[in-house]
Each structure stands twice: as C-alpha cells, then as structure tokens.
Simulated assay, not measured.
Amino acid sequence: MALEALSSTELFNFIMFDSAAPTPFTCNNDSSEASPQEIAPRLSHPPPPQDTTTRKKRRRRPKVCKNKEEAETQRMTHIAVERNRRKQMNEHLAVLRSLMPDSYVQRGDQASIVGGAIEFVKELEHILQSLEAKKFTLLEQQVNNKDQYEKSDDQNYKQVMGSSSPFAQFFAYPQFSCSHNQLGNKYTSQSKAAIADIEVTLIETHANIRILSRRRLRQLSKIVASFHSVFLSILHLNVTTLDSLVLYSISAKVEEGCQLNSADDIAGAVHHMLRIIEEEAILGCQS
C-alpha cells in the first residue's frame, strides 16, 4: 500500500489535511516542517471576520401600500382631485376673460389671460384714482361757493374738511405718512422724517408701491432712474395729479442683486429718493 511508505508524522499530517480541506496532499521532508501541535490551533480557530465598514449601505426601499386595492384607491383619488382642480381653473379663467375687453387678451392661453387681467386691474385702479381726485375737486368748489352759515351744515364741507388727503383710501398701512391740509398751499409733515405718504407691499419678488407727494420738476424721471439704480424694474406705473399733489402707483419687480429685502427697506429707499429730489428742488428755487 502507498501509506506504508509514510512515516508516522507524515501519516498524521495526511489525516489532518485530508479532513480539513480537499486539497491534494504533498509530502515535505524539510526541517521547517510544522508540528501537529502548531497545526491543530490553526485549524481550531475560525478565520477573522471581514471588515464590513467599507461596504456600501443599502438604500431603504420606499414603503409600499399593504395591498393593491389601497394603492389603486389612492391613485384614483389623486386623479379625481387633479381633474377637479383643472376644471375649476379653466372655469375661473373663462369668467376672468369674459370680464375683460378683448383688447386686453391677445391669445387664449392661461398666461395671456392672467397678464391681461393684471393690465386691466391697473387701468381700473388708475380710473378710480382719477375719479376720486375729480370728486374731491368738485366738492371743494361746491363748498367754496357757499357762505359760512351754509357750510356748517353741509355734508360736503364736513367730508372735505374731515379728510386729511383725497387719496387716503388708497393707503391702508403706510410706512411713511404726512398730513395734507389746504391742498396747494400747505404741506406739513407729521414727523421730520416723512415728506410723503409711502406704502409698500411685497409678495415674493413683486412690490406694489404707492407714493403721494408734492409735484416737483422732473420728479418722475428721477424716480424711475433711482429705481433702476437699486435693481427695481418698473412693470406698471400710474400717475394721478391733483393741484400740487401727485399720486404714483408703481408695480415693480425686485431683480437679482437688489439689497432691499423687505417692504420697509423699499419704503425707506423710496423716501430717501424723494428727500434728495426735494432738496434739489429747494436748491433750484433758491438759486
């Protein structure tokens, strides 16, 4: 037999290696041959665990519905809600288009209808402001044509004298406020800082600005130039005058790079513009 030619040590190695792994046996008579006592501990200890820190973390799978019926119900509900929303939007756009003259709607798409509505509302606002100024002028004329006795009981007289400004209804919460008495003659400020009525409302990047101040030479062109210098692009502008007063209704867009981050900041910048224009007008009159 082949095993008879093997020594006892080689026979022990053959038995150990044959039971541990299916690798073929090789005989080695070198002096550095490992003893059975050294081989046994190596086979008794399991290999060290592999490092799992380098493995990529598995992504968590999104939670799914418990059953297909629930998923289908949610999908159908979402479709119904979206369909109803689109239906209501189309109905509102149709009504909005019917309320505007055809000249304000160039095309029938949603953007054109909404843009035309903005233009139409601005035009109506300008008409309302102009009518308010004419109404105030007519009331003043009627009051001035009556004697002192009749004035005391006249409702028009009370309305004229009780109103600090003919455009007071257009200023709900102004950041700067003045009082206007005896239009054309006096223009007194309630505080040293305020030289005009200024109200600014800001929604995202669109600002609505109303200014009521005394009329000055080249005032409008200077305001427009000042707006551009602080990265405010004017989208709409209405101007209404009454005697020595002027009302500006401005719709502006806050462009990238503008340092004015709130309605109060914009109101303060506008007031600063008007103060510079006022000082230049005073210096021009003195010279």
Rank of each mutant, 00 (worst) to 15 (best):
V95W: 14
H272F: 05
S229A: 12
Q148A: 12
M1L: 11
D109L: 04
A34P: 04
Y104K: 02
N29F: 07
Y187V: 01
N28A: 03
A94I: 02
V160N: 05
M161P: 00
F170G: 01
A194M: 09
V224I: 01
Y157R: 02
F227R: 00
R215V: 07
L220H: 03
F120K: 01
S164D: 14
A34G: 02
S179G: 06
A133N: 11
G257K: 01
E33T: 05
P46V: 00
V270L: 08
N84H: 04
P47Q: 01
H271M: 05
I209T: 07
T9C: 09
R83W: 03
D197K: 10
Y173H: 08
A5M: 11
S191Q: 14
V95C: 12
S163C: 06
V230W: 02
F231I: 03
A193N: 10
S244D: 14
H271A: 05
L217Q: 05
R215E: 13
C258V: 11
G257Q: 09
Y149D: 12
I127G: 09
S163A: 14
H92Y: 09
A40E: 15
R97S: 14
Q175V: 10
A21Q: 11
T53C: 05
E72R: 02
R85N: 04
E33A: 07
S31L: 06
A111T: 04
